[in-house]
C-alpha cells in the first residue's frame, strides 16, 4: 500500500455562492504536488480544510495518516504551513518571533532558522510591519522549514516574490523532498513554478477537481491543436477539453492520441491546460 502524505476522499464544503464539490486526490510521500486553479477556484479552502482551520461538510481527509478534524499536536509538529500572507503580530521582531515559535514547536531548530534568515537576508531589528511582502513570505517559509516538518503545505506562498527568490525557494523545496519521507503541497496560479518542481498536479476549477495525476502523464496526455475555425469541428468532441477561437484561427486542447494525423499539434503545458479547463467551466 502506498503511504499517502495527503489523502482526500469526496470532500464537500458549502458556502454561500461557492461549493467545494466532492474533492478527492492523494499525494504520496516523497513527492511535490501542485494545486492549480484560478483565484477563487477553491485552493485555499482545500488547504484550510486539510489543516482543520475550517470544517468539512462531508468526506474524509487524512494528513500523514491522521484525520484532519482532530490533528493532534504531535502530528501538527510534523507539518509546516505557509499562507499567502504572514500572520505574525506586526510589532514583533525576528528574535521575538523565534522565541515564541521555539516555545511552541518541540523540534524547533535554531541553527536551521538562523541559516535561512541569513540566506534570505532578513533584518534582525526591524518590526514585521516594516517588512516588505517578500520578506514576510521568506520569514514564513523559514519558520515552516525550521521545525523538522515532514509535510509542507504552501498556499500561494511564492506569489509575492520575484523570479530570483522564487527559484531559490523552489530549489529549497526540491532539496527538502530528497528525504523520501518528506512531501510538499503547493498551491499556486504561477504554473511555470509548478511545472518546474511538481511530481503531481491537481487542477481545480470552481470547486471541482478537473484532473489530478502525475505531471508527466498529464503533459503527455494532452496536446494543443492549432487550425482554422472550420477544421476545429472535425476534432473528436468527447476527447476535446476546450476550444478557443479568434479571428486568425482556432486552438483546442485535446487528448494527444485523438489528434488526427493531418493536424498540427504541440505539447500542452500546465498554463495551457489551466486556461482551457477553466474556460470550459465558464462556457457552461
Amino acid at each position: 500500500m502506498v503511504d499517502f502524505a495527503i489523502d482526500l476522499k469526496n470532500v464537500t464544503k458549502k458556502y454561500d455562492g461557492f461549493m467545494l464539490n466532492n474533492v478527492s486526490f492523494t499525494l504520496p510521500r516523497g513527492c511535490i504536488m501542485g494545486l492549480i486553479g484560478a483565484n477563487g477556484a477553491g485552493k485555499s479552502t482545500i488547504i484550510k480544510l486539510m489543516l482543520g482551520i475550517i470544517k468539512k461538510d462531508s468526506g474524509d481527509i487524512k494528513l500523514l495518516g491522521c484525520d484532519s478534524d482532530k490533528l493532534s499536536n504531535e502530528v501538527k509538529e510534523r507539518i509546516g504551513v505557509v499562507f499567502d500572507e504572514s500572520f505574525f503580530p506586526e510589532n514583533m521582531k525576528l528574535r521575538e518571533i523565534e522565541r515564541v515559535l521555539a516555545n511552541i514547536y518541540k523540534n524547533w531548530d535554531e541553527t536551521v532558522f538562523a541559516r535561512y534568515i541569513s540566506e534570505f537576508g532578513l533584518p534582525q531589528n526591524v518590526a514585521i510591519k516594516d517588512f516588505s511582502r517578500g520578506m514576510k513570505m521568506k520569514l514564513s517559509i523559514a519558520c515552516a522549514l525550521s521545525h523538522n516538518a515532514e509535510l509542507l503545505v504552501l498556499d500561494e506562498a511564492t506569489s509575492g516574490l520575484d523570479p530570483i527568490v522564487r527559484n531559490e525557494i523552489l530549489d529549497i523545496f526540491l532539496d527538502f523532498i530528497q528525504d523520501e519521507n518528506n512531501s510538499v503541497l503547493i498551491s499556486s496560479h504561477i504554473t511555470s513554478d509548478l511545472e518546474k518542481v511538481c511530481d503531481y498536479v491537481t487542477f481545480i476549477d470552481n470547486g471541482k477537481i478537473i484532473m489530478s495525476d502525475e505531471k508527466d502523464l498529464i503533459l503527455e496526455k494532452y496536446a494543443v491543436v492549432k487550425c482554422s475555425q472550420d477544421e476545429i469541428d472535425k476534432l473528436p468532441c468527447e476527447k476535446t477539453i476546450g476550444i478557443r477561437k479568434n479571428k486568425f484561427g482556432a486552438e483546442a486542447l485535446t487528448e494527444t492520441k485523438a489528434v488526427p494525423a493531418d493536424f498540427i499539434a504541440e505539447p500542452a503545458d500546465l498554463e495551457k491546460i489551466m486556461l482551457f479547463t477553466a474556460k470550459k467551466e465558464n462556457r457552461k
Partner: peptide, 14 residues
C-alpha cells in the same frame, strides 16, 4: 488584527 488564529492553529497547539 494579525489574523493569528488561522496561522496559530496550524501549529502544535490545540
Amino acid at each position: 488584527r494579525a489574523k493569528w488564529d488561522k496561522y496559530g492553529l496550524t501549529m502544535p497547539v490545540s
